[in-house]
């Protein structure tokens, strides 16, 4: 039965999950906008962040929520390191640049998965106890699981901070300028490689934040990143490649469409709704919702 309450419940869970999807997609979108690279290891960045959270929880016995900025900081280093160590070489390719980037990052993804299996075995892990785990808030009869709510709020905060960073700081302006014309910024004294490395760091830190919160209510295993990465690609494309705030809107749409299709179709087919919306949007607007 579809009652007003049911509908608002579906919309609420879709909205919360959608904001988390947006946070996962933000880093992918940022990196793409900056340098036209689709990072096929994005899901593995998320997985790394989830394991990092898990490991820190075990070692430090702190709550994932407190650890989330630390995880984001760790992922910043991981992201910047991946750029300096790998992506910078992929950017130098003269021929079939696109495929080189796809397979360099895809190779990286497999290596990270292997490392996760080596360090943690393929077993499913979960964080047994946390402040938010299993808690639920209720607002006018609409239930909101606390971890998802925290994820949604973290996502909004992160997008707010990203907006301030891009509009108000020198680094943000350098980022924006590099985005517009990576060749010309060298002439005005901006170190392109440094901006790219920072961009990768920032992108990984955003997905790191998402991973820390996701680890509260999701099983952690070496292959956990795949499905989330696929949703992130669709989200980024739906919003228009490179439009970070397009990814925010697209994430919310994806979350809500998923929640609706899980009810209307059946839970095992909920992804079809997302994919159908993607195809519909790009067939009508071949550059996504907010792409130029």
């Amino acid at each position: 039965m579809l009652t007003a309450e049911n509908i608002s419940q579906i919309l609420m869970s879709g909205l919360l999950m959608g904001l988390i999807y947006a946070l996962i997609a933000a880093g992918l979108s940022l990196i793409f906008g900056l340098m036209d690279v689709v990072n096929f290891a994005h899901g593995e960045f998320l997985m790394t962040a989830m394991y990092a959270t898990f490991g820190l929880v075990v070692v430090l016995s702190l709550d994932p929520l407190i650890l989330s900025p630390i995880v984001a900081a760790i992922m910043f280093v991981v992201g910047a390191f991946c750029y300096r160590g790998i992506i910078v070489h992929a950017m130098r390719a003269r021929t079939n640049v696109g495929m080189v980037q796809v397979f360099a990052t895809f190779g990286l993804a497999i290596v990270i998965r292997g490392l996760a299996q080596f360090a943690f075995t393929p077993d499913y892990r979960s964080i047994p106890k946390s402040w938010l785990g299993g808690q639920t808030l209720s607002l006018f009869g609409v239930y909101m699981p606390a971890p998802q709510l925290a994820g949604a709020l973290a996502s909004l905060l992160a997008f707010g901070a990203l907006w301030l960073l891009m509009k108000k700081t020198d680094f943000g302006r350098a980022l924006e300028a590099t985005r517009e014309d990576a060749g010309a910024v060298g002439l005005v004294g901006i170190d392109r490689n440094r901006v790219f490395a920072m961009g990768w760091g920032l992108g990984a830190a955003l997905v790191g934040l998402a991973g820390a919160i996701l680890s509260i209510f999701y099983y952690i295993h070496p292959d956990v990143g795949g499905p989330f990465a696929l949703i992130a690609y669709v989200t980024v494309a739906l919003g228009g490649f490179g439009s970070v705030f397009g990814a925010l809107a697209a994430g919310v749409i994806v979350g809500i469409v998923e929640a609706i299709s899980a009810t209307v179709l059946q839970p095992s087919m909920k992804a079809i709704g997302i994919y159908a919306v993607y195809l519909l949007v790009v067939f009508l607007r071949p550059r996504g919702l907010f792409g130029h």
Binding site: F103, L108, A109, I110, V111, R113, G114, L115, P222
Partner: peptide, 14 residues
């Protein structure tokens, strides 16, 4: 299931 095969295979592709 130690993941050595994945590490090696991924590294070769990369």
């Amino acid at each position: 299931g130690k993941g050595f095969d994945l590490i090696f295979y991924g590294a070769v592709i990369m």
